[in-house]
Amino acid sequence: MTNSQTLTLSDVPIGTRVRIHRLSARPEVSRRLRELGLCEQAIVSCVLKGHGNIICALDNARIGLDRRLAGTIIVSPFE
């Protein structure tokens, strides 16, 4: 499990579902993410990786994030 501790949302291959483990961005940014539903325990997947940013899926919503930010969202594999 040591490996999964450092896995972030930006590393997740497209289509794989993961569980959010921890948010390590600045507090006000993390708060924003939580309000949008990207909180601890939430299950998300990466839909596509674009030009320096990604779109992730959370239930039926699609949220665009820049890669740097996705790199601060620590996830662990689900499924």
């Binding site: 940014v29 699609r62 665009g64 820049d66 930010l69």
Partner: peptide, 9 residues
């Protein structure tokens, strides 16, 4: 700034 934005269907 960091980019966070919902993409509506």
């Amino acid at each position: 700034p960091v980019f966070i934005m919902e993409m509506p269907p």
